[in-house]
């Protein structure tokens, strides 16, 4: 995202003669920074600190009063040795690799197609596609849950014997992907629509004069121009995928295939709250944050390098 601005000059570079601009700037920043430090930076530090601690047991059968000890990197070793935790990363990677492209493809397709629909219908359809974004993930999962459960689902009623078991061991990941696609396609579509709007009309006209049809216009002119929007939506989707939590947590009740370690976030939550090991949970939170940040940065730099080499 930083890099998308590289072309623009820094407007504040000109000398400023106002009285004490430094102080005014910090004054404007202060409210945000105070909350940001308190609710973003401090918890990360706290989690790092906790990830270095461990519990020591005493008393008969170990049920006596526990004490706290310094663990060094033991928690990290323990977390990384848990195959179920490593598998959970593999699962969300797989999920993201399929779900994000499908969702973005749908979003772009719908955005491009809507360009060819007259005003009133475009509005209705856009609103329809965007509607699921207003449905909280938890509620969306409850709804789709009802559409998935065999015996209750009207979809399996309609399809009869041909209906797949949406919640079966091998299917449930993609049933979850469907919920996420349902929730966020419209949102991503809107970002693309916004970007399309910002394309100057003259470009289209020029293309039309050059004899380009709608397909060529879409592929040669529109697609490259909506790339910044796609980068943005991609980064958000990556972050969103990494923190997948509410959907598997809710669907778990109906789908035994969803384990307590289904996603990294769920795994950390279970360690911290169900298994009362906050130190291991903090460790997993730190690992998750590092991986998510690294992935987003890696994606951004990959895109930027490509962009630079194209210029």
């Amino acid at each position: 995202m930083t890099t998308t601005r590289t072309g623009s000059p820094t407007p504040a570079a000109t000398g400023r003669r106002s009285p004490r601009p430094d102080r005014a700037a910090w004054g404007f920043l202060a409210p945000f920074l105070a909350v940001f430090l308190f609710t973003f930076v401090a918890p990360i530090g706290y989690a790092v600190y906790q990830s270095l601690l461990t519990v020591e047991r005493h008393g008969p059968m170990g049920l006596g009063e526990p004490t706290l000890g310094f663990a060094g990197l033991d928690n990290y070793t323990l977390a990384l040795q848990q195959t179920s935790f490593i598998e959970s990363f593999g699962r969300v990677f797989l999920f993201g690799l399929v779900q994000i492209p499908v969702m973005l493809f749908l979003a772009v397709t719908l955005a491009l197609l809507l360009e060819h629909v007259s005003g009133r219908w475009a509005g209705v359809l856009r609103a329809t596609y965007f509607l699921p974004y207003g449905v909280p993930g938890v509620i969306a999962t409850i709804l789709w849950g009802f559409l998935y459960v065999p015996g209750v689902s009207p979809i399996s009623d309609l399809l009869g014997g041909a209906a797949p078991d949406f919640l079966a061991y091998d299917n449930v990941l993609w049933s979850l992907a469907n919920i996420v696609i349902w929730e966020f396609t419209g949102y991503n579509m809107l970002i693309v629509v916004a970007q399309l709007r910002s394309i100057p009309q003259e470009l289209y006209e020029a293309a039309t004069i050059d004899g380009a049809g709608p397909w060529q216009t879409a592929l040669r002119i529109k697609l490259p121009l909506i790339r910044p929007a796609l980068v943005l939506t991609c980064v958000f989707s990556i972050i969103g995928t990494m923190q997948l939590f509410a959907e598997p947590l809710i669907i778990k009740l109906q789908a035994p295939a969803v384990t307590g370690d289904y996603t990294p976030n769920l795994s950390a939550y279970n360690d911290g709250f169900a298994n009362a090991n906050v130190y291991l949970a903090a460790t997993k939170s730190v690992i998750l944050a590092v991986v998510a940040c690294a992935l987003s940065f890696a994606f951004l730099s990959l895109v930027t390098r490509k962009q630079r080499s194209e210029r």
Binding site: A42, G45, V48, Y49, Q50, L53, V55
Partner: peptide, 14 residues
């Protein structure tokens, strides 16, 4: 980053 743990240095019990 270095300042954060200091902020969080509260009493801990397991």
């Amino acid at each position: 980053v270095a300042a954060a743990p200091a902020l969080a240095a509260c009493a801990e019990s397991p």
